[in-house]
Design a protein around this nucleic acid. Structure first.
Lengths: 355, 355
DNA sequence: ACCAGGACTTAAAACGCTTGAAATTGTCCT
DNA sequence: AGGACAATTTCAAGCGTTTTAAGTCCTGGT
């Protein structure tokens, strides 16, 4: 039998892998199916499919064609196992956070550019950081990008032993960990600068609770107020990261003797709550009270809120996080690095000079 | 050498797998490491770790102990490959949607109960449904749960050949696919019933664009208006699923001769936009205008909005979706099933009798 | 005619786990 | 003591890729 003929025979042997599974699902074609279809070894097919130089042009075309015909798709699990690399970055997110959503979006593009994929694991009411991270590890993530982790520093350091950890958005007290964040105190400082520049004195701060981030922002507020000689006007009301907190804070204020001329909220969600409550109470913004948020998340940009806020540059943070991971994985960086980005004020419609 | 002694020797042979990788990362312990540590075969260890009956109590304890000591964690990729089952449900979500966030939360708990895990793949501006689904398949998801897919019905059917597809939240015209959704037209109908019951006649609808869901809701509005003899008052203004659309719609209305007495928005986000714009314009809600949303997502529940809306019972939809997947995978169900849940009105503070 | 060297290909050994069959050990009878 | 049987444990063959070392074929040069 001539080799050419043999080959031709094989190419027509099967009908394209349309064998149906008992549940009606086609069985997934594998490398071998593609290989026998073109009469080559799985090795060659693998080479072609990964774009490794070596196979001839003719082979390349035939393989690509056959793979397309069969609807072949590489099996990640198998290739991860074989290559001992998953090329996967594990990302822990709070699925309810709009800001995280933004980060994930940019992480995706950044990761893709350097040839990595993302696997997401989300925090929910019934799913804590521990399980989220375990999941990521079970998928063999090569690095862990944790968005706003709340775990104690030493737990994160321990984790870092299993896979490089990149903490995003949170300061970690002198730990040997990669951190990407913005200078939260500086951000709030900029807000206060802006407001005092407009002539505000009575600037109230709606707090964000007990996390590290909240602490930094609160400190930024206090420091800036004192810097402007407004130490006496420092006023912090309890709150958290939700719209509800903002609304409660306003109700609390309305009970008091008089309103401050400006309200700075821990984040945008909280600020939206403030805005909504003020609107309902018939208080003009920014006419009577100026309001500022933090995060520049999708909500704040909406024309209906048009909130002055501080941008955390999700895009930049995402890029730095991915870069940090890649440096660890592909460039053997050992020393931890902390990237602190400068936040910047986004002036929109909720701030103006006091009446 | 006595067997007992041999065994003891081996248990002390290594130090717990603390060998450090060049990047400072511990190398991941494998089944074999646990096995040699307790002087057993990997088969036994595997059995114990998966809780398969067979191994003796003593063995069980020793293995569990050793695994914990080493910090052993099963490698999903390897076990998926070996067992030819990933026990993974692929979920496609729009990471910016609060409603999807809710669904994911419930999907997680539902999946866990039946021994499956979730892998999430998200839609972003630069990541379309196709890539999202490819990713899911590359992870070897056994079934695909697509939240609000926009792909044409035939594309979904084609996909269903590769892995069972469960479309959530969207009607699919008579396709051979599993669908879990709520009766959107009925939901909007309930809203109109409620409003007319309160005495409203001029009820305006802010549309959601051109998706199937938007079509159903719009139809529900029209039908219900006619049913109540208010066909003349049917009025639909263009919009979409964002706060911006709601706000624009209101600005448009304010330019007109006079306001309707009630506004029904395509979804909660849109309704929030309506609410914000009305508040800014000094229009009292529900005093002058009643507002209703759709989805009962986290935003609407906030006291600062306290939006009357329709609940899509995320929890129930999630459960049904997981059940559908499991029936396909473990119980060989072949015939497609459509689960249509009844939505229910959630009365809150933004509706009242017209002035 | 022969061989070096390049251009392609491929055989086969991992990768870390699961699993059905086979082997081992122990127990209880007779 | 011998055997049957149940309880444990292990063997070894995969799973679908990757990857390295080893081929196979040509092409030219001598």
């Amino acid at each position: 039998m001539l080799p050419e003929e043999h080959c031709r025979r094989e190419e027509q042997l099967d009908d394209g892998g349309s064998a149906r599974h008992r549940n009606g699902t086609h069985k997934r074609p594998k490398l071998e199916d593609v290989a026998t279809r073109v009469g080559l070894s799985t090795a060659s097919v693998s080479l072609v499919l990964r774009g490794v130089p070596g196979p001839s042009e003719r082979t390349r075309e035939r393989v690509l064609r056959a793979a397309a015909d069969l609807g072949y798709q590489v099996d990640r699990t198998a290739s991860t196992l074989a290559s001992r690399r998953s090329r996967l970055l594990g990302v822990m997110v709070d699925i309810h956070s709009p800001f995280h959503a933004e980060l994930v979006e940019h992480l995706h593009t950044a990761a893709e550019e350097v040839g990595y994929d993302l696997v997401l694991s989300t925090l929910t009411r019934t799913r804590d950081e521990h399980t989220a991270v375990e999941t990521l590890l079970a998928f063999r993530s090569e690095a862990l990008i944790l968005l706003g982790p709340t775990a104690p520093a030493d737990a994160l350091v321990a984790l870092d032993n299993k896979a490089p950890v990149i903490a995003v958005g949170r300061r970690i007290a002198g730990a040997a960990l990669d951190v990407v964040r913005t200078a939260d105190d500086d951000g709030v400082g900029q807000i206060v600068d802006h407001l005092t520049g407009l002539g505000h004195r009575e600037i109230l701060y709606v707090d964000g609770g007990k996390g590290v981030i909240a602490t930094d922002r609160r400190r930024g507020y206090r420091t800036a107020m004192r810097r402007h000689g407004q130490g006496d006007h420092v006023r912090v009301v309890a709150g958290d990261h939700t719209e509800g907190a903002g609304a409660r804070a306003v109700r609390h204020l309305l009970d008091g003797p008089r309103l401050p001329t400006a309200v700075v909220a821990f984040n945008d969600q909280c600020a939206i709550g403030v805005l909504a409550a003020l609107a309902r109470a018939g208080v003009a913004v920014p006419g009577e009270v100026s309001v500022v948020g933090y995060d520049d998340d999708t909500l704040s940009r909406l024309s209906c809120f048009n909130l002055t806020t501080v941008s955390q540059s999700a895009r930049e943070q995402a890029r730095h996080a991915v870069t940090a991971a890649v440096e660890r994985l592909d460039r053997d960086r050992i020393e931890p690095r902390e990237v602190v980005l400068a936040p910047h004020l986004v002036l929109r419609g909720t701030t103006a000079a006091p009446a």
